Simulated assay, not measured.
Amino acid sequence: MPSSPTTAPAWTKAAWFKPAAIAVGAIIVLGLLVLLARWLRSTEAVSQFIATYPGHAALPADTPTGLPLWLNWSHFFNVFFIVLIVRSGIQVRYTTRPQGYWKRNNKGLIKTKGQPKKISLDLWFHLTLDALWVLNGLIYVILLFSTGQWKRIVPTGWDVFPHALSVVIQYASLDWPLENGWVNYNALQLLAYFVTVFIAAPLAVLTGLRMSGAWPAKAPRLNNAYPIEAARAMHFPIAIYFVAFVVVHVFLVLTTGALRNLNHMFASNDGEGWLGFGFFAAAIVVIVAAWFLARPLFLRPIASLMGSVTRN
């Protein structure tokens, strides 16, 4: 008896159809946005608006020029920790059977009342990275304000908003604004950096702290004012924001003068040489290696230095 022809499972077709439809829809929307932006730029009003607000808001007269070496190092550690925080956060969120557990020994300088709680090795790694990221951020903010570099990423006038709108139109039209990040970020960059440093980062810390074991459990008024459900609802979207920010940031760095931008970010100079690219490549190697080495086999010995590690 001849066998009936086989067909692909319905769920397979459906699984391919949805992301394909989303991708096609996104391309169509982007295409329409480009056409709209180019049409707007052809009008006299928008053309005059861009001429008046080319994209770079005025900075205070004493704003420092260039990026210091300490900022290069802080930038590297920030990227390093964020990548691993996202990786460990995904593991904490979706792993149902952890490959190890960690419990603090309640010895040394920091002690708590009662029996220390056992947490998954993934959560220990996530919290450790969080602490290091916060430490790096505190050092960054202190140096930012003590050296005057804050003036480059904090709006000091209302003109930043029309300049930012001008940059959006220029980017959307694929006729991008002139970049000179060594002296002055464009207004959209400035606002993005401000939101990331002074809004998204503190919210990530506050929501993560609310969800951690360090938050006081016996504080009914505080817990009612700031319920854990609110922290959980915000924490994951904030992580998505950081991922989106990094993706867009890297894309623009590589498409608006890669060598010069990488020298700004990794070599503290405004040249067109390959030094910044070399440091960038080394940083990528270190981050990729850390990504693959962040496994229980390598995490257990490090975690055991801070507490006891068990398999269950």
Rank of each mutant, 00 (worst) to 15 (best):
residue 184 N to K: 05
residue 136 N to I: 01
residue 183 V to C: 11
residue 22 I to D: 10
residue 100 G to Q: 02
residue 20 A to G: 12
residue 179 E to S: 14
residue 126 H to Y: 03
residue 175 D to Y: 13
residue 184 N to P: 04
residue 47 S to D: 14
residue 178 L to T: 15
residue 174 L to C: 14
residue 144 L to Y: 03
residue 42 S to A: 15
residue 312 N to V: 10
residue 72 N to E: 09
residue 192 A to R: 03
residue 106 N to S: 08
residue 136 N to Y: 05
residue 245 F to I: 09
residue 72 N to Q: 08
residue 67 L to S: 09
residue 2 P to H: 11
residue 119 I to D: 05
residue 74 S to F: 11
residue 118 K to T: 07
residue 168 V to H: 11
residue 127 L to N: 07
residue 96 T to M: 14
residue 174 L to S: 13
residue 292 F to Q: 06
residue 43 T to Y: 10
residue 146 S to I: 04
residue 171 Y to T: 01
residue 292 F to A: 02
residue 263 N to Y: 03
residue 78 N to R: 07
residue 269 N to T: 06
residue 96 T to I: 12
residue 23 A to V: 12
residue 146 S to N: 08
residue 84 L to E: 01
residue 74 S to I: 07
residue 182 W to C: 04
residue 217 A to Y: 11
residue 94 Y to E: 08
residue 82 I to Q: 04
residue 225 A to E: 11
residue 287 I to L: 05
residue 56 H to C: 06
residue 71 L to T: 01
residue 311 R to F: 04
residue 270 D to Q: 09
residue 88 S to E: 05
residue 240 I to Y: 10
residue 200 A to D: 08
residue 75 H to T: 04
residue 282 A to C: 08
residue 95 T to S: 11
residue 166 S to E: 02
residue 219 A to L: 10
residue 108 G to P: 01
residue 114 G to Y: 06
residue 103 K to F: 06
residue 32 L to H: 14
residue 146 S to T: 09
residue 65 T to R: 15
residue 294 A to S: 09
residue 170 Q to S: 04
residue 307 G to T: 00
residue 311 R to T: 05
residue 140 Y to T: 02
residue 297 L to T: 14
residue 26 A to I: 08
residue 35 L to A: 13
residue 269 N to E: 07
residue 15 A to L: 14
residue 18 K to C: 12
residue 310 T to M: 03
residue 195 V to T: 09
residue 270 D to H: 07
residue 102 W to F: 01
residue 139 I to F: 08
residue 38 R to H: 11
residue 210 R to C: 04
residue 155 P to Y: 07
residue 200 A to T: 10
residue 178 L to G: 13
residue 20 A to V: 13
residue 207 T to Y: 00
residue 103 K to M: 09
residue 14 A to E: 15
residue 28 I to Q: 10
residue 73 W to N: 04
residue 4 S to Y: 15
residue 254 L to Q: 11
residue 71 L to N: 02
residue 215 W to K: 01
residue 121 L to N: 01
residue 250 V to M: 12
residue 277 F to Y: 11
residue 88 S to D: 05
residue 216 P to C: 08
residue 57 A to E: 01
